[in-house]
Design a protein around this nucleic acid. Structure first.
Length: 668
RNA sequence: GCGGACGUGGCGGAACCGGUAGACGCUGCAGACUUAAAAUCUGCUUCCCGUAAGGGAGUGCGGGUUCAAAUCCCGCCGUCCGCACCA
């Protein structure tokens, strides 16, 4: 038999992924997202090569192994191992067709499960083909050729150079089938060709026992292998990219039709341009399982655009990810005659802030970026990255409730009875379960409509913003929404209250309240900062504090101004109430159009500060001092403290640390 | 197994660069108003001892660095999420 096997050897490119690496600013990007995304695409740099194979003669099969420390691979190899599922033209299949036992082996492997658990626990199985491949660098070396179940078809050519001493999988395999294991990378101490033990050495080191590569570091050796293979014309360095798991079509109604017609004579024929877009039928039946388009009585039956004969439409539709991968480009420009206008799209894009759930962060985001880059490379659009900023928000969750018979109950079917939960209908006991993402199957959903009816959209919104930081899950609670509702009421009362001086009479609008002024401007600054960082819960807390302070303050011009400002601060979060309030106090136009309150930075500077007094790092007292008080002054003040004196109990302090405007720490 | 994140009161969560842990909200308790209730308002609410003043402990656990650690370092434990033999 004469054939050529194509094999690959690879270097992991852990820091790679250049083509998909984001050059953009990922404002607020959760760090969790990037590694996740990285794992969904992968780059590696295999050297693909070809080596002639031939039947192994009995004599060389034993002898070849010890000599066959391959130099062709980055980690020089012993056996060549191929995947069991290499496609038609591939070596396994060709071998399999001629060798019955090999065929049986391949079949046996393919019968195994493909689930995660199956793969994980699957034993490494190999089949010795009895063939050898000639080593490209050392033609007299013959490498045994195995078929094995653990080699991935998808990686490179589906055939690899095994490196048993330096790859755990190969080592397991070699030990199982009694193949020699030769050290080709020195681990610092050992350079002996014999490799003992059951643990592969995968660390860094210089190559040994590998002829012309000896002494090189791994990376250097890889390049040397690739350039030599390319010079000699039997192999080349390649970059393999893989974008995982994108099922483009599905048997589903909801999705963009795939514009193809299948004709018995002409094969797959594209739908002519003038018949686009394809409109899906509306009289479809969703009751029966299966694809309603395929079942539809006449929609799929059309004439072939080429021969005019009877033909059928494609009834699969595109996965919704396909269109969500470029809809933002269409959104930016919507010409009637084409998908998008490049100039307009380039002017608008990239999208400033992408906000989505985590599941979008890794899938939709990846596809959208892929699509944009593809369009960019095709010259259809100028932008390379669709989104400048990414933020992934948490999900709304709710406790689950399980009835005695194991079925799930919805929150309005249960009620609290002391410390226990019971069923409203019959008082039977209910077991509260885990707090989970709202889903129909667990019945832990809450219908927003009645809540909006009862409390108003503003209260609902306020609660959602205030409860937890947006990147975390939000646990829906009735008590929480009540609290939000109370605050909304308070805001309104503050505005409606005459004391606020927001009415027509001016007498309440006299006098200054320096404390309130300072707090107001601190709040303006803080809220702006928090909103920009998407820390809405913190912004809400600051607004609460301001509202509390206003309520306590006596009428003054400052107070009236604080109320006016408060309305503008809450406007992004409770827009309806804010507009009402704005109108009530006679604000011009819409508060939505009003500028963000101006900040007086001079009011941010505190005149007095609270100084913590510690003894041995423990807080014992506090005192107020003028801002910027000198270290000796602060020390003197601190030592004058009665509580400090009590702690020191007469002894002199060993050391005093003074941090101006913050604290004094006395080491006793 | 690999990768990532997280761990702070009864709960959701604050705490800037290592500098007063528990802001703000929820819950709960007490009080005011009310014939009563709701609403509203006031106060308290990390835990332990104490009537109190005050004292002690405390940010998953164990160490370390530092005058000072929720925060930095080392080692564990736990929870959640993602991935699946990528040579």
């Amino acid at each position: 038999m004469s054939a050529t096997i194509r094999w690959a050897t690879c270097s992991p490119a852990s820091g790679g992924c250049k083509a998909m690496r984001c050059s953009t600013r990922w404002a607020g990007t959760p760090s969790a997202c990037r590694p996740k995304m990285r794992r969904w695409k992968r780059r590696s740099i295999p050297a693909n090569g070809r080596a002639p194979i031939s039947p192994r003669c009995a004599t060389s099969s034993s002898g070849s192994d010890s000599r066959s420390t391959g130099a062709a691979s980055s980690r020089p190899a012993n056996p060549i191992i191929t995947a069991t599922n290499r496609r038609c033209s591939s070596i396994s299949t060709r071998l399999a067709s001629s060798i019955a036992r090999a065929a049986q082996f391949v079949k046996q492997c393919q019968a195994g499960g493909t689930s995660a658990a199956d793969i994980e626990t699957a034993e490494k199985l190999g089949y010795d083909t009895g063939l050898t491949a000639r080593h490209p660098f050392e033609p007299e070396w013959e490498l045994p050729l195995y078929i094995a179940n653990f080699v991935l078809m998808d990686y490179g050519t589906g055939a690899i150079f095994g490196v048993p001493a330096h790859d755990q999988r190969d080592l397991d395999f070699a030990r199982k089938y009694g193949l020699p294991v030769r050290r080709v990378i020195a681990d610092g101490e050992e350079a002996d060709p014999e490799f003992a033990g059951g643990e592969a050495f995968s660390g860094d080191g210089a190559l040994v026992n590998s002829r012309f590569l000896d002494g090189m570091e791994i990376e250097t050796a890889k390049s040397a292998v690739i350039s030599r293979a390319e010079e000699e014309g039997w192999g080349e360095g390649t970059t393999v990219w893989r974008l995982r798991d994108w099922g483009v079509s599905r048997q589903r109604y909801w999705g963009t039709p795939i514009p193809m017609i299948h004709c018995a004579e002409c094969g797959a024929v594209p739908v002519p341009r003038d018949q686009l877009p394809i409109i899906l039928p509306e009289d479809v039946d969703f009751e029966t399982p299966g694809n309603p388009l395929d079942r539809h009585p006449d929609w799929k039956h059309v004439a072939c655009p080429q021969c005019g004969g009877e033909a059928e439409r494609e009834t699969d539709t595109l996965d919704t990810f396909v269109d969500s991968s470029w809809y933002f480009i269409r959104f930016a420009s919507q010409p009637g005659d084409k998908p998008f206008d490049a100039a307009a799209a380039d002017a608008w894009l990239p999208v400033g802030q992408y906000i989505g759930g985590v599941e979008h962060a890794i899938l939709h985001l990846l596809y959208a970026r892929f699509m944009t880059r593809a369009l960019n490379r095709m010259g259809r659009i100028g932008v390379k990255e669709p989104f400048a900023g990414l933020f992934t928000q948490g999900m709304v969750t709710h406790e689950t409730y399980e009835a005695g018979d194991g079925s799930w109950l919805s929150p309005d079917e249960v009620t609290r009875d002391g410390d226990d939960w019971v069923r409203v209908a019959d008082g039977s006991p209910v077991t509260p379960g885990r707090i989970e993402k709202m889903s129909k199957s667990k019945k832990n959903t809450v219908d927003p409509d009645p809540i909006v009816d009862q409390y108003g959209a503003d209260a609902v919104r306020w609660f959602m913003l205030s409860d937890s930081p947006p990147e975390r899950d939000l646990e829906w609670s009735e008590a929480g929404i009540e609290g939000a509702w109370r605050f909304v009421q308070r805001l309104w009362r503050l505005v409606a209250d005459d004391k606020s001086g927001t009415g027509p009479s001016t007498e309440l609008r006299t006098g200054e309240d320096a404390d309130l002024d300072r707090r107001l401007h601190r709040t303006i600054a803080g809220v702006a900062e928090d909103i920009e960082a998407l820390g809405f819960n913190k912004a809400v807390a600051k607004i609460h504090e301001l509202a509390n302070a206003i309520e306590k303050a006596e009428p003054s011009a400052s107070r009236a101004e604080a109320v006016r400002t408060l309305i503008r601060l809450v406007a992004p979060m409770v827009p309806h109430l804010a507009e009402e309030a704005w109108a009530k106090i006679g604000g011009e136009g819409l508060v939505a159009d009003a500028p963000w309150p101006e900040l007086d930075e001079s009011l941010l500077v505190e005149e007095e500060v609270t100084i913590a007094i510690q003894v041995n790092g423990k807080l014992r007292d506090t005192l107020t001092a003028a801002k910027g008080a000198s270290k000796p002054d602060l020390e003197k003040l601190a030592l004058a403290s009665e509580k400090v004196a009590r702690q020191l109990d007469g002894s002199a302090p060993k050391k005093v640390i003074v941090v101006p405007d913050r604290l004094v720490n006395i080491v006793a």
